[in-house]
């Protein structure tokens, strides 16, 4: 299989030489013409561990390298159990993301841009990439980990299969990377933001953590998000919701209150503040917040009304 891989790589070079890079590898061409000035010319993350593996274990191995570089302390065998599908002789992308979450990391699928891989590596984060060496009707998938780049020689340095340092020219990489939609991910601890993170994408990554019960990790990640985007409604709401789920009502109240102050038009923030205040026994304050939420209306009206009714019901015995 490795021989076939080398042959394909060589074929790739010829193909690119014949076809010209601009049409086949537009991102590489753009990068060569105008390399981002803020990026160092050469980076290599020598601290990323290397676990040599057979080709079909490339998913678990790549994951273990990235996770351990982030400090997760996992073993390749564990990753095999978590992501490897014997029948497919490979691993699915969604499971790669899910396994990173299971091991306490934020799994962030970066935007499909070549320069974003460089920016993540320059910031010290190895990037797991999905390559395809086959053709449309005969795909041959492979995960590798980009641990460095050299803009002078215009190549990536990747941990791949049995190679600890495999160099690959950027246009060739772009060619094998584009076939499956430029898929690339990073695994970062919740107290650190990926270098290329954008608010909506990153918040979806944390919501996935929250939904799968990784509440503490999600809570930390929302706090990290709020540092970078202090006005983010999603971050404030997530911080409050995870605090609430962890039984920290005081923290939840503070987060929801901040959300209602920064976003007075958010019925979700008012509703959650009302619910939290009611749980803390502060019914008069809760009622005021719930009434404001109902007045705002919108698609959450049914929930806001239910919260208001419940608070009124709780008040009745006292009257």
């Amino acid at each position: 299989m490795l021989q076939a891989f080398r042959a394909r790589l060589a074929a790739g070079f010829v193909f690119l030489a014949l076809g010209g890079c601009a049409t086949i590898a537009p991102m590489s061409t753009a990068l060569k013409d105008a390399p981002p000035p803020e990026l160092p010319r050469k980076v290599e993350l020598t601290g990323v561990p290397f676990y040599p593996q057979e080709d079909y274990y490339c998913g678990p191995a790549a994951l273990a390298m990235a996770l351990n570089a982030a400090g997760a302390g996992v073993k390749v065998e564990q990753m095999v159990k978590q992501v490897y599908l014997p029948e497919r002789r490979g691993s699915l992308q969604v499971e790669m993301l899910a396994a990173a979450r299971r091991n306490g990391m934020v799994a962030y699928q970066i935007e499909p841009r070549l320069d974003h891989i460089l920016r993540e590596v320059a910031a010290g984060t190895p990037v797991i990439v999905l390559e395809n060496y086959g053709y449309g009707w005969f795909p041959y998938w492979h995960y590798s980990v980009v641990v460095g780049y050299d803009l002078e020689r215009f190549e990536f340095i990747r941990r791949s299969g049995f190679n600890e340092r495999q160099n690959m020219p950027l246009p060739v990489f772009e060619h094998v990377w584009q076939k499956d939609g430029h898929w690339a991910m990073v695994a970062v601890p919740p107290d650190r933001l990926p270098a290329t993170a954008i608010e909506t994408r990153y918040s979806s990554a944390i919501v996935a953590l929250e939904k799968t019960g990784q509440l503490k990790t999600a809570h930390t990640a929302y706090a990290t998000m709020l540092k970078r985007w202090p006005q983010s409604l999603i971050a404030m709401m997530g911080l409050g919701n995870t605090a609430y789920a962890l039984g920290n009502l005081e923290g939840a109240e503070a987060a929801f209150r901040r959300a209602t102050q920064a976003h007075p038009g958010s019925a979700a923030a008012l509703n959650n503040l009302a619910q939290t205040l009611a749980d803390r026994g502060r019914l008069a304050d809760a009622l005021a917040a719930a009434e404001r939420a109902v007045k705002l209306g919108g698609p959450l009206l049914a929930t806001s009304r239910a919260t208001l009714e419940e608070i009124r019901r709780k008040q009745r015995p006292a009257n």
Partner: peptide, 23 residues
């Protein structure tokens, strides 16, 4: 019956969805 709609917190995923819809 009037209370059959569960009073609950609005989930973060709902907030994300509505932000996405607006975007």
């Amino acid at each position: 019956l009037p209370f059959s709609t569960q009073a609950a917190l609005v989930g973060t995923d709902q907030v994300v969805a509505s932000a996405q819809a607006q975007a």
